[in-house]
Design a protein around this nucleic acid. Structure first.
Length: 306
DNA sequence: TGCCAGGAAGCCG
DNA sequence: CGGCTTCATGGC
């Protein structure tokens, strides 16, 4: 069934390119799942998304977002896209002196911070370390095909697969994971799967924690450092105050927010934290959204969006 | 054209 | 701070 959601701050392609979700699969116009266009001409991007074992076909024509899903799952998907938040207001709150952030938010004004499954985010961002985004996509997809459950479908050949549960992933041996070219991340994934399957990593409890507690909890596990924990918090637990610092963000902070004089006495180890506090602390409680704008913008300008 | 060094949404010991 | 899996990319 098709449902329409209206928003001027929503862009499927920007969301797909924003580096938070690696399972938005473009649906080809020749596919039977491709949505019938509202108007005759525009048949632009359509994507399939699987989350929590649910399936959505989503497409867009201007400010009309077409959600093709079961009626009882509509609220789930609206929540997934963070439809309860006023992104117009977020952008309006940007400090007018910060011209870089203004430009970034303008370029990525259709970005949403998705509410993805915590377990999927844990594994996805453990995989992400020292990998390119296309590479991450391929690896996550492989895990789903190999270990995930197919969703109910007429023909099995074109079935969509859910992200594997902890138990399903734990069924893979370390050698098996190494064959998938996961490299040194294989041992992290192997142990995390067993931790989750056997209850040492308590996903339910994790979901009830606030940002600080979740960071503390997550970084206690093998293979999860501060950066990955922040990504899990931001994209899996919707702690939008989380501000992951990767190599792109480091570059941006140094090029656009660093001041030689101001930080000349700041220890190198805490430099980024200080810059973030000084420049993004004013967006108290939602700085992570600004992080996404600048991350997307820098990659867009570098022509690195694939 | 072919090769190699540097780097990729980092983390562990 | 060195090491780590693999591999697409850019410079020479």
């Amino acid at each position: 069934m098709n449902y329409i959601y209206e928003s001027s701050c929503f862009d499927l392609k920007q969301i797909a390119d924003s580096g938070q979700c690696f399972r938005m699969t473009p649906v080809m116009p020749d596919s039977p799942a491709f949505p019938k266009p509202l108007t005759c001409e525009s048949t632009l991007p359509a994507y399939e998304i699987i989350s929590c074992g649910k399936r959505l076909i989503v497409s867009q024509e201007g400010s009309h977002i077409v959600l093709d899903c079961q009626e009882e799952e509509l609220d789930f998907w609206k929540n997934y896209f963070d439809c309860g938040r006023d992104y117009e207001a977020v952008i309006s709150s940007i400090n007018p002196d910060d011209t870089y952030l203004l430009a970034a938010a303008q370029a990525g004004r259709g970005i949403r911070i998705l509410r993805q499954e915590p377990w999927e985010m844990i594994i996805t961002f453990v995989i992400s370390q020292q990998k390119t985004i296309p590479n991450i996509r391929a690896l996550v997809n492989t895990l789903c095909l190999r270990y995930g459950s197919p969703l109910s479908s007429e023909n099995e050949a074109s079935a969509s697969y859910a992200f594997p549960t902890p138990c399903q992933l734990a069924s893979a041996s370390l050698e098996e994971l190494l064959e998938l070219k996961l490299g040194y991340r294989a041992k992290y994934i192997h142990r995390l799967s067993h931790d989750a399957a056997e209850g040492r990593l308590d996903l339910l409890s994790l979901s009830s924690m606030d940002y600080a507690a979740a960071m503390d909890y997550l970084t206690g596990f093998y293979g999860i450092g501060k950066k990955v924990a922040n990504c899990i918090c931001l994209f899996g637990l919707h702690h939008v105050e989380a501000f992951p610092v990767d190599t792109w963000i480091q570059k941006i902070l140094m090029e656009h927010y660093f001041n030689e004089q101001k930080y000349r006495h700041t220890p190198k180890g805490s430099l980024y934290e200080h810059i973030i506090e000084d420049c993004f602390g004013q967006y108290s409680g939602y700085a992570g959204i600004m992080q996404q704008y600048i991350f997307y913008y820098e990659r867009l300008r570098s022509n690195r969006l694939n």
